[in-house]
Amino acid sequence: MISQAVTFLKEELSRYILVNQAEGDSLNLGDVMLGNISALENDQEGKLKNKLVISLVNLEEESTLKNGKPYHKNPLTNGAEYLQPPVYLNLYLLFSATLPDSATNDDYDRALHRLALVIQFFQSKKIFTLNNSPQSPFADPKYDLFNEELRLLPELYTLTFEQINHLWGSLGGKQVPFAMYKVRLVKIQSRITSDAPLIEEIQEKNEELGAPRIDQLTN
C-alpha cells in the first residue's frame, strides 16, 4: 500500500509538472521518479541526476486512530468476524530537484522552478482521492489496489537547520533543492480474518459484597 500510495502521488505530480514546466525545460514523464536520494553521490550512470526524485525518509503511525473495534459483521454470513484494526501511517516524502554533472546557474534556476511547481501542485490540491483524480490509472475499476477509503492529505513539513543537517548527513550526500511533505493517512490492513465465537449463554453470578451481617457474626 505504501508503494501504491507514493506512486499515485508521483503520477499526479508528473502530469502537473509536464504541463506547467518552464519554457525550455526538458523534463519528461519518467524524470519525476521514485528513488533513493542517498544513491545520488554514487550515481555514475546519471539515473538520478537532473531529475525530480521522491524518496521515503520516514514514516510514523497515526496514534489518534490506533484504537479501533476488532469485531465486524460479515454481510454474507451475518456472523461476527475478528479483524485487527488497520494501521494508519504518515509518510514523510522528500522531493529533491537534482542537478546534472557540471551544473550551471541555469541548471540551478531550473531546479528551483521544478521545486516551486511541487509546492504549487500540493497547494492547489489539498486532498487526494480516486474520485478527484480521474486521470490516474488507479481510478480504473480493474485495479484492486485501492478502495473508496483512499484519502491522502499532504502538508508541507518544515525542518530546522539542525534537522536539515542531520537529514542530509544521514543520506550521505550533498544537499540539493528539496521540500519535505508529510502525507497523511496511508491505511494498511491485513485481509486475514477469523470467525469470532458466538455468545450462546449468559451466566449470572451474584456475590454478596461488603462486611458480614450482624446475624452472621453472632452465629
Rank of each mutant, 00 (worst) to 15 (best):
L94P: 00
L65A: 13
H72Q: 14
S96H: 00
A80D: 10
N78Y: 06
T98G: 05
L65K: 11
N78F: 04
L76G: 04
K66D: 14
H72N: 09
P75Y: 02
K66M: 14
E81P: 05
Y82D: 09
A97G: 06
H72I: 12
L91C: 10
N90M: 01
S96A: 15
P85I: 07
K69L: 13
T77M: 02
K69A: 11
L94Y: 04
L93W: 02
N90D: 15
L65C: 03
N74Q: 07
P85N: 00
S96I: 07
P75W: 01
L83T: 15
G79W: 07
Y82G: 09
Y88A: 03
T98I: 02
N90S: 14
K66R: 14
G68W: 09
S96G: 05
T98V: 06
F95E: 07
K73Y: 03
N90Q: 11
G68N: 02
L93R: 00
E61M: 05
L93K: 00
E62Y: 10
Y92F: 15
N74Y: 00
K69I: 12
G68P: 02
P86L: 02
A97E: 08
Y92L: 12
Q84K: 15
N74D: 15
V87M: 08
T98P: 05
E81Y: 05
Q84R: 13
S96K: 00
E62I: 04
Y82K: 15
N67F: 15
